[in-house]
Design a protein around this nucleic acid. Structure first.
Lengths: 213, 213
DNA sequence: CTCTTTCTCAGACTTTTGGCGGATGTGGCA
DNA sequence: TGCCACATCCGCCAAAAGTCTGAGAAAGAG
């Protein structure tokens, strides 16, 4: 019985490479390709694949959102997150969204094949680096407390390099209030300056890494 | 006459995908694969390829450094930068290093093939997005002045969220001196706070995006 | 040997940031 | 109804950040 695989990646070369890898093994059948999260979700509904290889960085709908949707709507389809970069928010985000595996694109073909087979059987498969990252996150007691909605809003502006006064103007509240929020943010994130908070925000992907055009 | 291509990318899937694309066209011959910049440089010397497809983000030696070295030592070999992300420093850095092309990995196969053929003939080929970015950089007058060595060092520490006092301790200089440097940095980068300077540093890749382990 | 750049530091000063305590109003929830 | 989390704001204060002016030492360029 072959494993029916859906590939979701916006990079043509990556799709081609994955197809190449998987076509060498008759256990797999590539039943579709998507170039963004929305398309992946639609194709998953249509084709009902066993495994989706999901890139996390895609236009239209990001891979994490798509993963969550697929897992919610198609419980029999397993998702493996496949990404080139290892970011804090990616690993935990993908896991939280229901991905059964997390692989880096520098994974060698045999490891990839093992991972997909494991996923098809519902077994968890993480790349060593992703596993290390996860361990670190779980191990570390410095897990930041959850921010409130307003605090997140303030952090987002702060991470754009704005001063308290500017943030106050933008949110139409007093500067003192902003300072209170910033103080609470620093304490919750366990950092000691707005710069560190801004760097944290960038790291977890709160602010987009500078849009195109 | 076939075009002899060397592929340099640390991701196995990407290498496979590129091979797949190029093998469909008899004009190309893939004569080697490298998984990092140092290996790319060594293989380029050994194999003397017409075109190198160079990923910019690689371990050992980054693609820009490798590109500069190849262009310096092997003037007949053209380099096409190939990357998944579009960053400020990448485009100008790659061009400055001597890359004749800059392509994103979401490039379709026919465009890729056209680009390699153009490169083999010494013709410049940029992906539309990269071209747009270049235009913007040239057009914008807000090009930051070059920092001195010391200032760069200070900026690197600053972008790790460190306070002036900590930076002073680490560089074994007075806090006043650090303040002077920071002031000069802010003025040169045309920003108004250390947080903005830190964000700039992250954006241009001055600080590694948080090392593993 | 000048001239320039860079790195270093100082004093004086303003602005910004961040901490601490206290206060009010709102809305959900037991 | 009382309790609690949240958002809003105040004042006070200390520390950090940032500006301006000036200036000495070392190194490299012309």
């Amino acid at each position: 019985m072959t494993i029916r695989v859906l590939i979701a990646d916006d990079h043509a070369v990556v799709r081609q490479g994955l197809k190449m890898f998987l076509s060498l093994n008759s256990d797999f059948e590539i039943i579709g390709e998507a170039t963004n999260g929305a398309e992946a979700l639609r194709l998953a509904h249509q084709l009902n694949p066993d495994v989706v290889l999901m890139d996390l960085l895609m236009p239209e709908m990001d891979g994490i959102t798509a993963t969550a949707a697929i897992r919610r709507e198609l419980p029999d389809t397993e998702v493996i997150a496949l990404t080139s970069v290892l970011e804090d928010k990616s690993v935990t985000g993908a896991i939280r969204a229901g991905a059964i595996g997390y692989l880096l694109k520098d994974t060698e073909s045999d490891e990839l094949i093992r991972a997909i087979k494991a996923a098809a059987n519902g077994q968890v498969q993480l790349s060593p680096k992703a596993a290390a990252r996860l361990m670190r996150e779980i191990r570390t007691p410095e897990s930041p407390e959850a921010l409130t909605e307003r605090e997140t809003e303030v952090l987002r502006l702060l991470a754009q390099g704005k001063a308290n006064k500017e943030i106050a103007a933008e949110l139409v509240i007093g500067e003192k209030t902003v300072k209170t929020h910033v103080s609470n943010i620093l304490s919750k994130l366990n950092v000691s300056s707005r710069t560190q908070a801004a760097l944290y925000a960038v790291r977890i992907g709160l602010v987009e890494e500078l849009g195109e055009q």
